[in-house]
């Protein structure tokens, strides 16, 4: 286990529900949750601390199990980081076999669309850390965001959408739909859930011309001014 590398990344892992669900299904894979938020809503703990506590509790309850045994919860962990900025600093080229974007922030306002976590240009960085054959999972309850992610992934030459039969065979699919806190909340409110899974291809098409521009309003300034709400 010690010299193993992380293979699955849950981007914006929130309360860590997916980590806990996948841990016993993939006891031989290291799974990392990445979360930017400092505080969990209605909770005084740092988000990372919260997930850490949750994992530690599970490990203690299952202390009788061997580290690489299913249900020992030794294969999951969480990190506080901005995954949009730092993915390539943490993972080598082709290190990951799965990346999860589950119920990402929708950024409804048009001028904030560029801040969405899945865009045609950012996908280049996710493709870099993902190995050929690796899979990206996108789940949301917001139709507009689902269509956005599908459009950008469809447009990206290194991704191919997986067919329904492929999803039916994938043990991760029920987890990504049901096991996260956000997924459960949507379930309680009987909201819609949209899923799209894409496979990372080894090579893209030749003769590719470029992406359509991502329009995020016509305000000027620079990227970080735009992000920094203090400036508004």
């Amino acid at each position: 286990m010690a010299d193993k590398k992380v293979e699955f990344a849950d981007i914006g892992c929130g309360y860590g529900g997916l980590l806990v669900a996948l841990s016993p299904i993939f006891p031989d894979k290291l799974i990392l949750g990445m979360e930017i938020r400092v505080k969990v809503e209605g909770n005084n703990l740092l988000s990372k601390e919260y997930v850490d506590k949750r994992i530690t509790a599970l490990r203690n309850q299952n202390a009788d199990k061997k580290p690489d045994e299913s249900g020992s919860y030794q294969n999951i962990s969480v990190m506080r980081m901005n995954a949009m900025r730092y993915c390539p600093n943490f993972f080598e080229k082709g290190q990951l076999s799965k990346i999860f974007f589950l119920f990402p922030d929708p950024h409804f306002k048009k001028r904030k669309h560029k801040a969405r976590i899945v865009t045609s240009t950012l996908l280049a960085e996710y493709a870099y850390v993902l190995r050929p054959g690796g899979i990206v999972y996108c789940v949301t309850d917001v139709r507009d965001l689902h269509e956005w992610m599908v459009k950008h992934l469809d447009e990206h030459p290194l991704f191919r959408r997986r067919a329904q039969e492929e999803l039916d065979r994938d043990p991760c699919v029920p987890c990504v739909l049901q096991e996260t806190e956000e997924g459960k909340k949507v379930e309680r409110n009987s909201g819609d859930k949209f899923i799209a899974c894409y496979e990372r291809l080894a090579e893209g098409e030749k003769g590719w011309k470029g992406f359509a521009p991502i329009l995020g309003g016509d305000d000027d300034g620079d990227k970080d001014d735009d992000k920094d709400e203090a400036n508004e």
Partner: peptide, 9 residues
Amino acid sequence: LLLIGHVSI
């Protein structure tokens, strides 16, 4: 056409 996007300037 858009070719590349970085997260900062």
